[in-house]
Simulated scan of single mutants.
Amino acid sequence: MKWSVLAAMALFISYPALAQPLTAVLPEPLLAADVPAGKIVPDVLRCLRDRNTTLVSAHRGGWGPGYPENAIETLAHTLSRGPLIIEIDIRRTADGVLVVLHDDTLERTTTGTGAVSELMMEEISNLQLVDAEGTVTDFRVPLLSEVLEWARGRALLQLDVKSSVPVEEVVAAVAEHDAIGYSAVVSYTLEDALRAAAANPRVALSIEITDRERLEALIAAGVAPGRIMAWSGVHPAPVPDIWAMLREADIPVAFGALWYIDTAVSDTGDASIYSEIADGGVAVIATDLHWTAYDTLATRQDTLAAYRACLSP
């Protein structure tokens, strides 16, 4: 029996609210992310950077009409067109279950109400996800464990750990589901980054680094630069000084085009800024306009060829 069938059965058993096994109906990636043994996400990003190739990060899974934020169906739909890195958000229910959901409350993205942290998983599993246009879909709030299982051999993940969630629990879930090779745990404070680093010496870390003091503090604390991908923040314009500092440390850099730059691109129709950011040596561009950025970058790079080469054993 093929792995995809086994995974489908496992998801169906663990999530009884679903009408049918997820992977029985999901598309496969155009180019699957099967990370070579012993490698982690920053290794792949360094390889891509050295091939002058920038990955797009699909914010909240690459949502769009009919595809709500953070749904497994949305992740699969996104990757069916091309290779991106997938960013998702982690919350924790009242009974300690890690789920994939952005907001601390349910109203905006589901048919439910109330705080995620005050509801049991059984209650949340009965809700339906709502897309950005307010359309109710048949999709459900996924467990982090389900996404980690689905993503094996398919996707590179950035796990954005929300402030109310103990980062150690997310690190433990990554290790438990043998997802170390394809998952990076996101943290924004030095304290959380050091806690994540201490929780498991192998798990990749996506850490906000916008100054030399933060970088030096991480290295002084014993965090190996090889396990870090740096988040250089969300800015209205490129920040080449930060990127150069991180390149000097051989740390792959992600930059947020969210809000400011994405809005300007939407208003003007000029997407050339994404190529300008990539030309600055950035390994990942996080954006809500993921296909606009992806298609723009196609004029400067062969993403498929580089991705395939960097995932070769």
Rank of each mutant, 00 (worst) to 15 (best):
G153K: 01
R154E: 13
R154L: 01
A155P: 13
L156G: 00
L157M: 09
L159P: 07
L159G: 11
D160E: 12
V161C: 14
K162G: 05
K162D: 01
K162R: 15
S163T: 14
S163Y: 08
V165C: 12
P166Y: 02
V167E: 15
V167S: 10
V167W: 01
E169C: 00
V170H: 14
V170S: 13
V171M: 07
V171C: 08
V171H: 13
A172W: 10
A175I: 13
A175E: 15
H177P: 14
H177S: 14
D178F: 00
A179H: 05
I180S: 07
G181E: 15
G181L: 09
Y182P: 08
Y182M: 04
S183P: 05
S183N: 04
V185I: 03
V186Q: 11
S187R: 00
Y188K: 09
Y188E: 07
T189D: 09
T189N: 05
L190H: 01
D192Q: 14
A193F: 02
L194F: 03
L194Y: 09
L194R: 01
R195N: 04
R195Y: 04
A196R: 15
A197I: 03
A197D: 03
A198S: 08
A199N: 08
A199S: 11
P201G: 11
P201N: 12
R202F: 12
V203C: 10
V203H: 10
L205G: 04
L205V: 04
I207Y: 14
I209G: 08
T210Y: 03
D211M: 11
D211C: 11
E213R: 13
R214F: 03
R214V: 12
L215M: 12
L215N: 06
L215S: 09
E216N: 12
E216H: 02
L218R: 00
L218C: 06
I219P: 11
I219W: 00
A220E: 15
A221P: 05
A221T: 10
G222L: 03
V223P: 00
V223M: 02
P225H: 10
G226H: 10
R227M: 06
I228K: 06
A230S: 09
S232L: 05
V234Q: 04
V234F: 15
H235M: 08
H235L: 10
P236S: 08
A237P: 03
A237D: 14
V239A: 11
P240W: 15
P240D: 08
I242Q: 09
I242S: 06
A244T: 11
M245N: 11
R247D: 15
A249W: 05
D250R: 14
I251K: 02
I251V: 12
P252C: 12
V253D: 14
F255P: 15
F255G: 07
A257M: 07
A257Q: 09
A257Y: 15
L258V: 15
L258Q: 13
W259L: 00
Y260F: 03
I261Q: 06
I261R: 11
I261V: 05
D262L: 06
T263L: 01
T263V: 00
A264Q: 09
A264N: 06
S266V: 13
S266D: 09
S266F: 10
S266E: 11
S266N: 04
S266R: 10
D267C: 01
D270C: 07
